[in-house]
Write a protein that binds this DNA or RNA. Structure first.
Lengths: 133, 133
DNA sequence: TGGTATACTTACAAAAATGTAGGTACTTAC
DNA sequence: GTAAGTACCTACATTTTTGTAAGTATACCA
């Protein structure tokens, strides 16, 4: 558990040469991965990949999100630079959400994963059989 | 909120022609997506994508996992047919975990996403600046 | 004889995520 | 004038997730 393990020392040393490593507990990439793979984050990216949406449009598109969670998720994705928020100064409010270039790249991966799952679901469920949860 | 909205009815109708849809709250694909994008599920897939591992080997490779969470995560992934568990009947126990063919396909997407994040982290952090959380 | 290692499971507790309900400010439709 | 729509925020309660510690059975090492 201490740093007397040579294998651990070598791993720590290697980490310095690597920009980021999701396997390291304290690597910032873990946070980003967390945002992109969060319960609602993934779905928001998938919907925005089809084009810009307004807040309530997103809410209606994503089955089960609450306003609170949608707002929170959008803020995280905006902070990471994946989502662009464009508020028109009118009343009632009108806000458009869209993907940045960075967001589009990220979304591509997320969309690919979810599309794969949707396509393979029958096969996956076949194997799962009666396993619960 | 009721089903009197024609747009919602159309969406519901369309869903019947689609095998699976992660945007629907009750679609089973959501569960699978959840397993693959869970905090530890993603990391397990990433490590297993590099080859078979034993339980404690996985535990050491993935910074921060507890035994409890690793065991639970592996069971989910096994139930979905992504991971194969091979227990040798010896004492002390020896169990090998590896990806099934299905698991390798799934892992490819997860690995692509995490690799992209690792590569783009500097750019992402640059945009994030001082945003917390 | 005691400590370490393997691969777990279980009970309990703490932490984190999420939902619910209410409020804001204003406008259009009925 | 009343209800609904817009895009949120805040407080509070509940649910879910996750961690911690202990236990299981056996064998190897000193």
């Amino acid at each position: 558990m201490s740093m007397s393990d040579p294998a651990q020392q070598a791993a720590a040393l290697l980490a310095d040469f690597r920009a980021a490593n999701v396997l390291a507990a304290d690597c910032p990439s873990r946070l980003v991965l967390g945002h992109l793979t969060s319960r609602w984050g993934t779905l928001v990216m998938i919907v925005l990949a089809t084009g810009p949406h307004r807040f309530s449009q997103l809410r209606r598109s994503i089955g089960g999100v609450s306003e609170r969670m949608l707002a929170q998720t959008l803020q995280q994705l905006e902070a990471d630079g994946f989502v662009l928020r464009l508020a028109h100064k009118v009343v009632p409010p009108h806000v458009d959400y869209s993907l940045t270039d960075l967001g589009m790249e990220a979304a591509a991966h997320v969309v690919a994963l979810s599309a794969w799952i949707e396509a393979k679901l029958p096969e996956i469920q076949g194997k799962t059989a009666m396993a619960a949860e």
